[in-house]
Design a protein around this nucleic acid. Structure first.
Lengths: 358, 358
DNA sequence: GTGAAAGCGCTAACAA
DNA sequence: TTGTTAGCGCTTTCAC
């Protein structure tokens, strides 16, 4: 007598965890073959007579049957799961940073529409990839969304590893060489920084400092590049003493502001590479008795929730982060469905939102 | 000729995705039976001769073999995955709130130590549970960590549903009736609020307002209770006009402060139910020309990163959120390993950290 | 329109 | 110490 022939109720004896109903139980109860149960559940590939269909559906209800994803996944080679790899220098920031948070929000919302699940894997840039590779090769994932923060050889190594696994993949934040065939959804950091800086110039500022982000991050570099380009276009000199910080840590702004203040010709405006940096600058300046925006104008980048909670609210560059998540999700799903178009690259526009600090 | 007998290289023809090596390929290459491959990989249940072991290991390397988790999971009924269900009124806040972020950080770190993966499912309080139930019953998860925010019948319904699935479960933030056998790790909100309020009293404040959180949340209620208890213990009247806000949204503080200011005898101190609320209060008060902490003392709750970035830094109640995540992870893992002790309930102490705002 | 049966890749009980 | 084999729960081809 095989396990499957044990009566279901009998197996539900107290003490042991109840055995779950399988499609065979359903088949027996409905008086059909296991195949038909599958046809009914999946609406194919064969059609079923309405009457049998009804009986099967009823049996499913009665037995409270739920298909086992492991078994189904093993059979059809699908897991209904996509992974999110956040490859950062401070990997556990995935959750802490409002930046990835917004992306994850978009991703999750879109995936759950198609009953897909999200598996999050923080990875440290340059860390040993073996554990990750084991995971990817274990067949647990149908697709992948990878957030890249820089273009070093460590990143290429990661991408190469991923591509050898053959898992469909969409990249976020950094573009990726076409040879990988990965598709990406990006954001126009450079244009945003250009717009922010230009805005300050238009407001009459001539000494505009830049609180740059951690220079290991490509987005920090792009934002700085946009800043420099704007100065140049507007015929302003770029005083190296005006670019400071080079860290994402808000507390690093303290030292940066001190040196800026010590300048013979201190800045009248600041363009910060992130809202958190901008926020700290505002706090510090205000504590030093300066009025925002009159004594010091400040523009941030990202438009995190805090930007609207500050007083005055922060003028900043808004990134459609949730949209990035949505699009990335739709693209992986597209790749999984063999839609070649999904492997394209797309860069989303950002927009300056004028509020109270500049 | 079965699929398994196709030569591996032949299957790697360009165009189609290369077939992955299976344990049978390894067995053939090493000249042993499939069982031995399993013994070697899992270090049991049978022992293997060192020589064969070597050969198997070499074959694994050569073929770049990685076990398939679906197949293994189907066989041993393990998925190496635990789910995190965040059951909130605003479910997509899982990622956005620094609160859950810290918990997730702890969870992830601990789980990855044991090569477990985390699947995050945001759920709206009171929402239809069918999609979630389908997921839970699909056998995709070995264990569950559930963050509960309140004790309504919707929560009981969720817990009941979970318990019928038989999945080992640990609850966070809210205790859970013992009948479920779930285990929990909590945080002493009431004591924290008591400490914060008492501190303000000791500093000489007599008119202490409370910016309460959204009253649908049990933590908001506990914090308010701690506040009231402290006033009572110190012989202070509890003026209902002094408790305001009742929302987690920082912008809701605006109206609350207005009415507080309009009082004949306005408060000299504020105990806020969260750091975000406290932050907004500080911003607003300062914009109105009041000095912190001299004109108005403020104490927060949570100790999110922002608390240290404000100027002056926020005096607040620190919750060991990452620790909550770590412990919850260890407990589910314990439950999965049939360790009955893991089903206990534990409440972690919080601590007042004195900084600049009070 | 439906049933029988093979097989996805793995583990473990049984045999040798 | 190792080989053989059944079976985890499902889908799908093949036969009727």
């Amino acid at each position: 007598v095989t396990r499957n022939e044990i009566d279901l109720n009998e197996a539900e004896a107290p003490g042991r965890r109840a055995r779950r109903a399988t499609h065979r139980d359903v088949a027996r109860q409905a008086g059909v073959s296991p195949a038909v149960v599958s046809y009914v559940i999946n609406g194919g590939p064969r059609t079923t007579a309405p009457a049998t269909r009804e009986r099967v559906l009823r049996a499913i209800k009665e037995l409270d049957y739920h298909p086992n994803m492991m078994a189904r996944g093993l059979r059809v080679q699908r897991t209904q799961t996509v992974g999110f790899i956040d490859c950062d220098f401070a990997p556990l920031d995935v959750y802490v940073s409002p930046y990835s948070a917004a992306i994850l929000t978009g991703l999750t919302a879109e995936l759950s529409l198609r009953e897909y699940h999200l598996l999050i894997s923080p990875v440290q840039v340059g860390q040993d990839l073996r554990q990750l590779e084991r995971m990817l090769r274990s067949g647990r994932l149908d697709g992948l969304v990878v957030r890249l923060v820089e273009d070093s050889s460590a990143t290429v190594e990661l991408l190469t590893m991923i591509s050898t696994t053959g898992i469909p993949c969409i990249c976020i934040e950094r573009p990726v060489e076409p040879r990988f065939g990965f598709g990406s959804v990006l954001v126009d950091d450079d244009a945003g920084a250009f717009a922010a800086t230009s805005y300050l110039v238009e407001r009459g500022h001539r000494r505009i400092a830049h609180l740059a982000g951690d220079s290991r991050y490509a987005s920090a570099a792009s934002r700085e590049a946009g800043y420099r380009r704007a100065l140049e276009v507007h015929g302003l000199p770029c005083d190296e003493a005006l670019v400071a910080c080079r860290s994402w840590t808000p507390l690093a702004v303290d030292a940066a502001l001190s040196s800026l203040d010590a300048l013979a010709d201190p800045p009248t405006a600041i363009f910060a590479a992130s809202d958190s940096l901008a926020f700290r600058a505002v706090e510090l300046a205000r504590a030093a008795g300066r009025r925002i925006p009159d004594d010091l104008a400040v523009v941030g980048f990202d438009d995190i929730p805090l930007a609207q909670e500050m007083v005055p609210p922060l003028t900043t560059v808004q990134i459609p982060l949730r949209e990035v998540g949505h699009l990335a999700a739709r693209r992986v799903l597209g790749l999984i469905d063999q839609d070649q178009e999904a492997a394209a690259s797309e860069v989303l526009p950002v927009k300056l939102v004028r509020r109270g600090t500049a």
